[in-house]
Amino acid sequence: MTEIWLPVLLTFLVGGLVKGAVGLGMPTVVLGVLSAYIPLPQAAALLVIPSLVTNIWQLISGGNLTSLVSRLAPLAVGLALGTVLAPIGMATVDAKFATRGLGLMLMVYAIIGLSAARFIIRPSLELWLSPLIGIIAGLVNAATGLFVMPVVPYLQSLEFNKDELVQALALCFTVGALALAFRLHQDEVPVFGDMSGSALALIAALLGMPIGKLLRARVSERVFRTSFYYCLLAIGGFLLLKTFFVSGLAYG
Protein backbone atom coordinates (compact mmCIF):
# COMPACT_ATOMS: atom_id res chain seq x y z
CA MET A 1 0.00 0.00 0.00
CA THR A 2 2.82 2.42 0.84
CA GLU A 3 4.32 2.04 -2.63
CA ILE A 4 1.03 3.37 -4.08
CA TRP A 5 0.21 6.10 -1.56
CA LEU A 6 3.70 7.57 -1.34
CA PRO A 7 3.76 8.71 -5.01
CA VAL A 8 0.12 9.84 -4.68
CA LEU A 9 0.85 12.09 -1.68
CA LEU A 10 4.09 13.40 -3.18
CA THR A 11 2.28 14.18 -6.42
CA PHE A 12 -0.46 16.13 -4.63
CA LEU A 13 2.18 17.96 -2.60
CA VAL A 14 3.95 19.04 -5.80
CA GLY A 15 0.60 19.84 -7.43
CA GLY A 16 -0.31 22.10 -4.50
CA LEU A 17 3.13 23.71 -4.67
CA VAL A 18 2.68 24.51 -8.37
CA LYS A 19 -0.82 25.89 -7.75
CA GLY A 20 0.48 28.07 -4.93
CA ALA A 21 3.28 29.38 -7.13
CA VAL A 22 1.42 30.12 -10.38
CA GLY A 23 -2.30 29.89 -9.50
CA LEU A 24 -3.02 26.78 -11.56
CA GLY A 25 -1.54 23.43 -12.55
CA MET A 26 -2.57 21.00 -9.81
CA PRO A 27 -4.89 18.82 -11.96
CA THR A 28 -2.33 18.94 -14.79
CA VAL A 29 0.50 17.70 -12.56
CA VAL A 30 -1.60 15.16 -10.66
CA LEU A 31 -3.22 13.47 -13.66
CA GLY A 32 -0.04 13.62 -15.72
CA VAL A 33 2.03 11.87 -13.04
CA LEU A 34 -0.53 9.54 -11.43
CA SER A 35 -1.73 8.10 -14.74
CA ALA A 36 1.65 6.31 -14.82
CA TYR A 37 0.82 4.59 -11.51
CA ILE A 38 -2.94 4.08 -11.31
CA PRO A 39 -5.85 3.99 -13.81
CA LEU A 40 -6.86 7.43 -15.07
CA PRO A 41 -10.46 7.30 -13.72
CA GLN A 42 -9.13 6.44 -10.25
CA ALA A 43 -6.63 9.31 -10.39
CA ALA A 44 -9.41 11.70 -11.51
CA ALA A 45 -11.67 10.52 -8.66
CA LEU A 46 -8.90 11.20 -6.11
CA LEU A 47 -8.47 14.68 -7.57
CA VAL A 48 -12.11 15.77 -7.22
CA ILE A 49 -12.14 16.82 -3.53
CA PRO A 50 -8.67 18.47 -3.44
CA SER A 51 -9.47 20.31 -6.67
CA LEU A 52 -12.84 21.51 -5.39
CA VAL A 53 -11.53 22.73 -2.03
CA THR A 54 -8.46 24.53 -3.39
CA ASN A 55 -10.36 26.14 -6.27
CA ILE A 56 -13.32 27.29 -4.16
CA TRP A 57 -10.79 28.81 -1.74
CA GLN A 58 -9.10 30.57 -4.67
CA LEU A 59 -12.45 31.61 -6.14
CA ILE A 60 -13.93 33.30 -3.06
CA SER A 61 -10.68 35.01 -2.05
CA GLY A 62 -10.84 37.41 -5.01
CA GLY A 63 -13.18 40.30 -5.77
CA ASN A 64 -15.67 40.92 -8.61
CA LEU A 65 -17.11 37.40 -8.32
CA THR A 66 -20.62 38.37 -9.45
CA SER A 67 -19.49 40.09 -12.66
CA LEU A 68 -17.05 37.27 -13.38
CA VAL A 69 -19.72 34.58 -13.00
CA SER A 70 -22.05 36.57 -15.26
CA ARG A 71 -19.39 36.94 -17.97
CA LEU A 72 -18.19 33.33 -17.84
CA ALA A 73 -21.60 31.66 -17.41
CA PRO A 74 -21.83 30.53 -21.09
CA LEU A 75 -18.34 28.98 -20.85
CA ALA A 76 -19.15 27.28 -17.53
CA VAL A 77 -22.51 25.93 -18.73
CA GLY A 78 -20.92 24.56 -21.91
CA LEU A 79 -18.15 22.94 -19.85
CA ALA A 80 -20.66 21.27 -17.53
CA LEU A 81 -22.95 20.04 -20.33
CA GLY A 82 -20.04 18.84 -22.46
CA THR A 83 -18.64 16.82 -19.54
CA VAL A 84 -21.92 15.25 -18.46
CA LEU A 85 -23.31 14.53 -21.94
CA ALA A 86 -20.09 13.52 -23.72
CA PRO A 87 -20.50 10.23 -25.62
CA ILE A 88 -17.09 9.02 -24.40
CA GLY A 89 -15.91 9.04 -20.79
CA MET A 90 -12.81 7.86 -18.96
CA ALA A 91 -14.61 4.81 -17.61
CA THR A 92 -15.61 3.58 -21.07
CA VAL A 93 -12.75 4.66 -23.34
CA ASP A 94 -9.75 2.36 -23.74
CA ALA A 95 -7.13 3.24 -21.08
CA LYS A 96 -4.39 3.44 -23.69
CA PHE A 97 -6.25 6.02 -25.79
CA ALA A 98 -7.29 8.08 -22.75
CA THR A 99 -3.69 8.20 -21.52
CA ARG A 100 -2.44 9.00 -25.02
CA GLY A 101 -4.93 11.86 -25.28
CA LEU A 102 -3.81 13.19 -21.90
CA GLY A 103 -0.15 13.02 -22.91
CA LEU A 104 -0.82 14.80 -26.20
CA MET A 105 -2.81 17.55 -24.46
CA LEU A 106 -0.03 18.11 -21.91
CA MET A 107 2.52 18.46 -24.70
CA VAL A 108 0.38 20.90 -26.73
CA TYR A 109 -0.32 22.98 -23.61
CA ALA A 110 3.39 23.05 -22.74
CA ILE A 111 4.43 24.04 -26.26
CA ILE A 112 1.91 26.90 -26.34
CA GLY A 113 3.09 28.03 -22.89
CA LEU A 114 6.75 27.94 -23.90
CA SER A 115 6.04 29.83 -27.13
CA ALA A 116 4.41 32.63 -25.13
CA ALA A 117 1.79 32.89 -27.89
CA ARG A 118 -0.94 35.44 -27.12
CA PHE A 119 -4.35 35.57 -28.72
CA ILE A 120 -6.87 38.36 -28.23
CA ILE A 121 -10.60 37.60 -28.56
CA ARG A 122 -12.79 40.54 -29.53
CA PRO A 123 -15.84 41.08 -27.26
CA SER A 124 -18.16 40.57 -30.24
CA LEU A 125 -16.85 36.99 -30.64
CA GLU A 126 -16.99 36.09 -26.96
CA LEU A 127 -20.78 35.60 -26.83
CA TRP A 128 -20.81 32.61 -29.21
CA LEU A 129 -17.22 31.44 -28.74
CA SER A 130 -17.50 30.93 -24.95
CA PRO A 131 -20.17 28.17 -25.05
CA LEU A 132 -18.40 26.49 -27.97
CA ILE A 133 -15.07 26.44 -26.11
CA GLY A 134 -16.92 25.21 -23.01
CA ILE A 135 -18.50 22.27 -24.84
CA ILE A 136 -15.17 21.27 -26.44
CA ALA A 137 -13.47 21.51 -23.05
CA GLY A 138 -16.24 19.37 -21.52
CA LEU A 139 -15.75 16.63 -24.10
CA VAL A 140 -12.02 16.63 -23.32
CA ASN A 141 -12.72 16.71 -19.57
CA ALA A 142 -14.97 13.65 -19.78
CA ALA A 143 -12.38 11.63 -21.70
CA THR A 144 -9.17 12.68 -19.90
CA GLY A 145 -10.15 14.51 -16.68
CA LEU A 146 -8.26 17.61 -17.81
CA PHE A 147 -9.34 20.61 -19.88
CA VAL A 148 -6.46 23.09 -19.68
CA MET A 149 -6.64 22.92 -23.46
CA PRO A 150 -8.53 24.88 -24.66
CA VAL A 151 -9.79 26.69 -21.52
CA VAL A 152 -6.54 28.24 -20.22
CA PRO A 153 -5.41 29.81 -23.55
CA TYR A 154 -8.99 31.01 -24.13
CA LEU A 155 -9.23 32.71 -20.74
CA GLN A 156 -5.81 34.28 -21.30
CA SER A 157 -7.13 35.74 -24.57
CA LEU A 158 -9.95 37.61 -22.78
CA GLU A 159 -7.50 40.18 -21.34
CA PHE A 160 -8.29 39.68 -17.67
CA ASN A 161 -5.86 41.26 -15.25
CA LYS A 162 -3.71 38.84 -13.22
CA ASP A 163 -6.08 38.57 -10.24
CA GLU A 164 -9.16 38.23 -12.45
CA LEU A 165 -7.47 35.49 -14.49
CA VAL A 166 -6.63 33.45 -11.37
CA GLN A 167 -10.24 33.78 -10.20
CA ALA A 168 -11.60 32.92 -13.66
CA LEU A 169 -9.44 29.79 -13.75
CA ALA A 170 -10.69 28.82 -10.28
CA LEU A 171 -14.30 29.23 -11.42
CA CYS A 172 -13.80 27.01 -14.48
CA PHE A 173 -11.84 24.39 -12.55
CA THR A 174 -14.56 24.29 -9.86
CA VAL A 175 -17.30 23.76 -12.44
CA GLY A 176 -15.16 21.22 -14.30
CA ALA A 177 -14.44 19.24 -11.12
CA LEU A 178 -18.14 19.15 -10.13
CA ALA A 179 -19.20 18.08 -13.62
CA LEU A 180 -16.49 15.42 -13.73
CA ALA A 181 -17.55 14.09 -10.32
CA PHE A 182 -21.12 13.77 -11.62
CA ARG A 183 -19.92 12.11 -14.83
CA LEU A 184 -17.72 9.62 -12.96
CA HIS A 185 -20.67 8.78 -10.69
CA GLN A 186 -22.82 8.27 -13.80
CA ASP A 187 -20.18 5.90 -15.16
CA GLU A 188 -20.10 4.01 -11.81
CA VAL A 189 -16.63 5.19 -10.80
CA PRO A 190 -16.69 5.72 -6.98
CA VAL A 191 -15.83 9.41 -6.56
CA PHE A 192 -16.27 9.41 -2.79
CA GLY A 193 -15.43 5.75 -2.24
CA ASP A 194 -12.03 6.41 -0.66
CA MET A 195 -12.64 9.41 1.58
CA SER A 196 -9.51 8.74 3.64
CA GLY A 197 -7.38 8.76 0.49
CA SER A 198 -9.02 11.96 -0.76
CA ALA A 199 -8.52 13.59 2.65
CA LEU A 200 -4.81 12.70 2.65
CA ALA A 201 -4.47 14.01 -0.91
CA LEU A 202 -6.19 17.26 0.14
CA ILE A 203 -3.87 17.69 3.13
CA ALA A 204 -0.83 17.15 0.89
CA ALA A 205 -2.14 19.73 -1.62
CA LEU A 206 -2.90 22.27 1.11
CA LEU A 207 0.61 21.80 2.53
CA GLY A 208 2.09 22.37 -0.92
CA MET A 209 0.23 25.62 -1.66
CA PRO A 210 1.94 27.84 0.97
CA ILE A 211 5.30 26.35 -0.04
CA GLY A 212 4.53 27.40 -3.60
CA LYS A 213 3.65 30.92 -2.47
CA LEU A 214 6.98 31.16 -0.63
CA LEU A 215 8.75 29.89 -3.74
CA ARG A 216 6.94 32.49 -5.84
CA ALA A 217 8.36 35.20 -3.59
CA ARG A 218 11.92 33.92 -4.03
CA VAL A 219 12.01 32.67 -7.63
CA SER A 220 11.05 34.59 -10.77
CA GLU A 221 7.57 33.55 -11.87
CA ARG A 222 8.81 33.44 -15.46
CA VAL A 223 11.57 30.95 -14.52
CA PHE A 224 9.10 28.85 -12.54
CA ARG A 225 6.52 28.81 -15.36
CA THR A 226 9.18 27.85 -17.92
CA SER A 227 10.36 24.98 -15.71
CA PHE A 228 6.73 23.96 -15.20
CA TYR A 229 6.06 23.81 -18.95
CA TYR A 230 9.22 21.79 -19.60
CA CYS A 231 8.15 19.31 -16.91
CA LEU A 232 4.71 19.00 -18.54
CA LEU A 233 6.38 18.46 -21.91
CA ALA A 234 8.44 15.62 -20.42
CA ILE A 235 5.44 14.05 -18.65
CA GLY A 236 3.32 14.23 -21.80
CA GLY A 237 6.12 12.72 -23.89
CA PHE A 238 6.56 9.91 -21.37
CA LEU A 239 2.83 9.07 -21.44
CA LEU A 240 2.82 9.00 -25.24
CA LEU A 241 5.91 6.79 -25.39
CA LYS A 242 4.41 4.48 -22.79
CA THR A 243 1.20 3.98 -24.75
CA PHE A 244 2.99 3.45 -28.07
CA PHE A 245 5.83 1.19 -26.94
CA VAL A 246 4.52 -0.60 -23.86
CA SER A 247 2.09 -3.37 -24.59
CA GLY A 248 -0.97 -2.68 -22.45
CA LEU A 249 -1.13 -0.42 -19.43
CA ALA A 250 -0.48 -2.23 -16.20
CA TYR A 251 -0.97 -0.68 -12.79
CA GLY A 252 0.35 -2.12 -9.59
Rank of each mutant, 00 (worst) to 15 (best):
I120C: 02
I121H: 08
T144P: 03
I135L: 13
M107W: 10
I121S: 15
L81G: 00
W128R: 13
I111L: 06
I133F: 08
L127C: 09
L146R: 04
A137W: 14
V140H: 06
G82S: 00
P131S: 14
P87A: 08
G82I: 03
V151C: 09
E126H: 11
R118C: 03
L114S: 01
I112T: 03
P123R: 07
A142M: 02
V108W: 05
A116K: 15
I88W: 12
E126G: 09
L81W: 11
P87H: 11
P123W: 04
L146I: 10
G134D: 02
A142G: 02
P150T: 09
A143F: 15
G145I: 01
D94Q: 04
G134F: 11
V93L: 07
L155V: 15
I88M: 01
I135Y: 13
G101P: 03
L125I: 06
A98Y: 07
L127P: 01
L158C: 10
G82R: 03
S130E: 07
R118G: 04
T83N: 06
A95T: 10
I88R: 02
V148F: 15
V93I: 09
G103K: 04
I111W: 10
L158W: 03
A117R: 12
S124T: 09
P123F: 04
M90G: 07
G113Q: 00
T92L: 01
S157I: 00
V93R: 01
L132Q: 04
P123L: 07
V152W: 10
L79T: 06
S130H: 05
S130G: 05
S115K: 05
S124R: 12
K96A: 15
G89D: 00
A80H: 06
I135K: 09
P131V: 14
A137H: 11
I133L: 03
I88A: 02
R100V: 14
M149Q: 08
V152M: 11
V84M: 11
L79W: 10
A86G: 02
F97D: 10
D94T: 06
M107Y: 11
L129N: 07
L79K: 04
